[in-house]
Design a protein around this nucleic acid. Structure first.
Lengths: 154, 154
DNA sequence: TATTGTTATACTCTATAACTATA
DNA sequence: TATAGTTATAGAGTATAACAATA
């Protein structure tokens, strides 16, 4: 018989989902950050670009702050950097001149595509120890949890 | 037939494992941090206690720094705080009086047990949207990835 | 007066470097 | 001279608060 049945009474905090997501999340984020560093981008920049690429290709900075779950002043510096790189454009909303509408440029799309390719390469190496069934199951579970947590899904 | 077969060509960076682990990891870590805040603990404190609880119940600060993947000076402040709470004890190694041996106290064990219970409650709510098969598959995949990444497994 | 974006400032986390004691 | 731990300092990242332009 198996020594473990159902939930292991001896299993400590490292075997909980929250703990493992936290620690693995840090590892994944660090590796991704290192991989995109040559592009002069941080994960948050990629998050902003991804948010602009999804559906409506433009948004006000307030909207972005809400979507990313960060404070508006942080969007300013992220957008400043991306604008300097030529990845996004700021245009005053003619209907409400207080608002800055951010749109992804062609170069921005190219950069985002590069980041996506990089992430996929990392995925392959990172999940190489998993069987294809395990990998698919992981993808599925993470997608559901991300949707539930209100995180970008597509 | 399904619109998606194998890997979705339209899937953006948010659907990669690294990106999702990163974002979900932040969410999980934030929730856990909020939950243990009443205990006057941060996730890193719990990580240190968990490291001491596993197998050999004591270690030098250098060893801990290595295990946690942080710099020794950070272990000092973590240990300071835990010592103030009565969760760990510092004892000079008689064999090498430069070394401080950290051991978990009874109170430390009790605190860690509380954190573990808290993490399990969070797990239940966090993974409530998953079927039991999906939850088991997630557990399995995360355990494998954690082991592969050299993170605590038990 | 309220809201958008911006700037100035402060706080948290963690690392690097300098220092003390022991070896 | 080298190492364990400590203390002092600095940097990255992000939030809060004050401000300017527009509504």
């Amino acid at each position: 018989m198996d020594e473990v049945k159902g939930s292991n009474g001896d299993a400590g905090i490292p075997s909980t989902v929250v703990f493992r997501l936290g620690t693995l999340g840090t590892v994944a984020a660090d590796r991704f950050a290192a991989a995109i560093e040559p592009l002069d981008l941080k994960p948050k920049h990629v998050g902003l670009m991804a948010s602009l690429a999804h559906g409506e290709a433009s948004a006000s900075q307030q909207e972005l702050a809400g979507r990313l779950g960060v404070v508006p002043s942080l969007v300013v510096s992220l957008a400043d950097h991306l604008e300097r790189l030529g990845a996004v454009q700021r245009v005053r909303d003619p209907g409400d001149r207080r608002r800055q509408i951010l749109t992804l440029t062609e170069h921005g799309r190219a950069l985002l595509a590069q980041c996506t390719a990089t992430a996929r390469e990392l995925d392959e190496r990172f999940t190489a120890v998993l069987s294809s069934q395990q990998r698919a199951a992981l993808q599925e579970a993470l997608a559901i949890l991300a949707a539930e947590a209100g995180l970008p899904t597509k």
